[in-house]
């Protein structure tokens, strides 16, 4: 798309307010070449709306703090260049959904941290020899790229529309569990958790999480589906059950 010129005027329509008193407010800014949406929001904050609430930290797509919905699409504001969106119309910026709203562009994401606590942590064997190879962990390292921006949690309709927060862990935590389950040194078994508590079978694989991931983690194909298959091994597969019975292996 065409490159934004310094001084070009752009309107941002930002959700403001808290509780029931919400409104969209238009702010006009003069953009600079190379700006991302977060530049505009911080400029508005510094010059027009000093109490505009927004989370951000690194401004380099490494921390996952500035998640929002830009023109209805879940994005990191620090990675969304004005060059790549239509600025002839007001750019609509809303907070992420799926979570209780706090104020302006900030949502309360504490629920995610509660879910994380319920996942059995990394459990190596006692005195395990930590010799393992790159080919063993290429898969795991993809999952560990996650920056916890929670855009996948935001877009997942199981949370966003069905509000199944008490029965469903969400894509972020399937990614985390996958990183543990597929770690060559880990000995814990989280299949029961995946099935009963994390609700892995609530997922109907619409891949929305994968599409929004700023780290390009193939959440559905590489984490969720392989985990489903692992639970299916235990739960729905009589052949595997038989093999387990005969060999006595787990």
């Amino acid at each position: 798309m065409s490159r934004m010129q310094t001084g070009q005027k752009v309107t941002f329509r930002i959700l403001r307010g808290e509780g029931d008193s919400l409104k969209e407010v238009d702010y006009h800014v003069e953009a600079e070449t190379g700006w991302v949406v977060l530049d505009a929001v911080l400029n508005i904050q510094a010059t027009q709306a000093p109490d505009l609430s927004v989370r951000w930290n690194c401004k380099a797509a490494k921390c996952g703090s500035c998640s929002a919905e830009v023109n209805g699409k879940p994005r990191l504001m620090c990675k969304t260049r004005l060059d790549d969106i239509d600025t002839s119309q007001p750019v609509v910026v809303h907070p992420i959904k799926s979570f209780p709203h706090v104020k302006d562009l900030v949502a309360d994401v504490k629920w995610n941290y509660e879910v994380n606590k319920r996942i059995t942590p990394f459990t190596p064997a006692k005195d395990a020899d930590f010799t393992y190879y790159q080919e063993d962990v290429d898969r795991v390292q993809e999952f560990r790229k996650c920056i916890e921006c929670f855009l996948c949690q935001n877009v997942c309709h199981i949370l966003r529309n069905h509000e199944a927060h008490s029965r469903f862990a969400g894509p972020r935590f399937f990614v985390r569990v996958a990183g543990l389950e597929m770690h060559p040194m880990d000995t814990a078994d989280r299949t029961q958790f995946l099935d009963q508590e994390a609700g892995v079978f609530l997922c109907n694989i619409t891949k929305c999480c994968t599409h929004v991931c700023p780290e390009d983690i193939h959440i559905t194909d590489n984490a969720i589906i392989p985990l489903k298959e692992r639970v299916i091994d235990r739960k729905y597969d009589p052949l595997q059950w038989l093999v387990r019975k005969v060999t006595g292996k787990k």
């Binding site: 699409k73 877009v155 069905h162 109907n204």
Partner: peptide, 26 residues
């Protein structure tokens, strides 16, 4: 087809069928 026929959801970040007791494929 969950998107196309069940509107669950119709598309990503578009509201469709909602159900607090959604059972998915369980």
């Amino acid at each position: 087809y969950y998107k196309a026929f069940f509107l669950n959801p119709p598309a990503c970040s578009v509201t469709g069928y909602t159900n607090k007791n959604f059972r998915g494929e369980t």
